[in-house]
Amino acid sequence: MSAPVLRLSGFGKQFGSLRVFSDVDLDVMPGDRIAILGASGSGKSTLLRCINVLETPSEGRLELDGELVGQPSRAGDMRFSERELCALRQRVGMVFQQFNLFPHMTVAGNVAEGLKTVRSVKSQKALERAVAELQRVGLADKADTYPSRLSGGQKQRVAIARALAMDPEILLFDEPTSALDPALVGEVLGVIEQLANEGRTMLLVTHEIGFAYHFATRILYLAEGGIYESGTPDEVLKNPKRPLTQQFLAEHRRFQF
């Protein structure tokens, strides 16, 4: 049995008096693909954003490869130095719902940016690597284009290439297809599936339950401020044991044909 790449323990987040989630314990093993489901407002995106500390978790511990990230303060919460955050985020990549490409840089420039600025890789080398990553998502021919000329699906594939260029150990996807035309969802899910086949460790927040079923090694259903039900896709999606999960899935099946 190998050691977890990511371990959350007693993990929680609150905004002011609003408790989004608490007491989340999670071990992510190498190669795990975890789909996080839940009604809107259940805190799935917040949980994901706390893992790379785009949101600062209010409580609990975050360990990467067995090493604690951040220092506990006297108040009990974690404090993260700028250096730690930069190191953490290079190891835990993220893809956003709204792509968030840099509009003033070319497609290749977007993908090469992290290597150039964060890793101080020479411009030429970084661009070569960028084109290689773009090849992987099928967009090498768009290298010199600006993001404004791309479709939503293409933008998201570039965003995935941008995250991949940093060689992250873990990839986080925050509703990567929610902002897309239905016709463009497939190409993005195809790229994510391909990454799954490569054995990458990924956490995916999604509303695409069908995709979650095929993609995930484990499903987390979030409700009532925590992990409400978890298990294999068959366990959680085919035979949900708890009422809120059942209700959620029934709601989803309502308009199936």
Partner: peptide
């Protein structure tokens, strides 16, 4: 847009690098 800050920070850029480059 705040998403620009987040995207830059998410690939490991510091606050200053984000400001300068993005």
């Amino acid at each position: 847009e705040p998403g620009q800050w987040e995207a830059a920070r998410a690939i490991g850029m510091s606050g200053l690098q984000t400001l300068r480059r993005v």
